[in-house]
Amino acid sequence: MSRAVSGPMIAADILKLRRHRTTMATSAALSVGVTALYLTVVLARHNGQLPGAQTLGDGTSLMGLYFGSFAAILIGAEAGTIDVTAGVFRDLVATGRSRTALFLARIPAAVAVALAFTLGGFLLTVAAALAFHGSTPAPGAGLIAESALWVVLATAVVTALAVGVGSLTGSRAVTLTVIIGWQTVASGMLYLATFLGAARDLVLVFAVSRFQPGPAIGTRANPGSSNALNNLKLPMPAVVAALIILLWLIVPAVAGAWRTRTRDA
């Protein structure tokens, strides 16, 4: 039997996730649902017109940094813990398939499912920004493509982080609390802690935000827009941001894989 991760293993992990109704419904509400609510509120405030580029930027932040990322964390945490909590982990181990392969199959599966939601919310934003921009300029194809790629990056990184932490802890509740707390409350506090200087670059959300298309560093995403979402950007070289993102991908994955290999089945 091969040690490698196979396509059917990833498909099986996708099956486990997409058949989990509560997780799917919550993820849909956090991504497409929140985006629809946001667009409705902004449309009402702007008399049926949306400022095109601002709407795109805010929708991108919603999916990459806020509610979309919560959905991605939920899905990643579920993927990292579902076999252990169901008691099926030992049956998977007893097949003889390597535990590392069992772990590695979870990451692409979770990312694929999470992307379905965050890109769904993003596409809804794009459609609304194009349809209701009124007299303001519509967002260009280049900006839309860059924003989509950034949503993919942000979703993939945070989902992989959640899979790693979920596999490490074996607890969905702990994983959700730790990662959402870190990504929102703790990172928000660190954003304001200017005395830490360049040490703040190590925070994942700042490194990911470095690549977000749109407004200048150190500003709110869209001053004067309806919700004025923070973009949490710090000035840092792209290569530093890329290395920090890589670090946040590798360390939790190694920890999760190690725990999967050593966990008592």
Binding site: M1, S2, P8, M9, A12, L15, K16, R97
Partner: peptide, 13 residues
């Protein structure tokens, strides 16, 4: 059936 599919995916074609 889906539970068997999950294990079968790990065991092979």
């Amino acid at each position: 059936r889906e539970n068997l599919q999950v294990i079968a995916a790990v065991r092979g074609p």
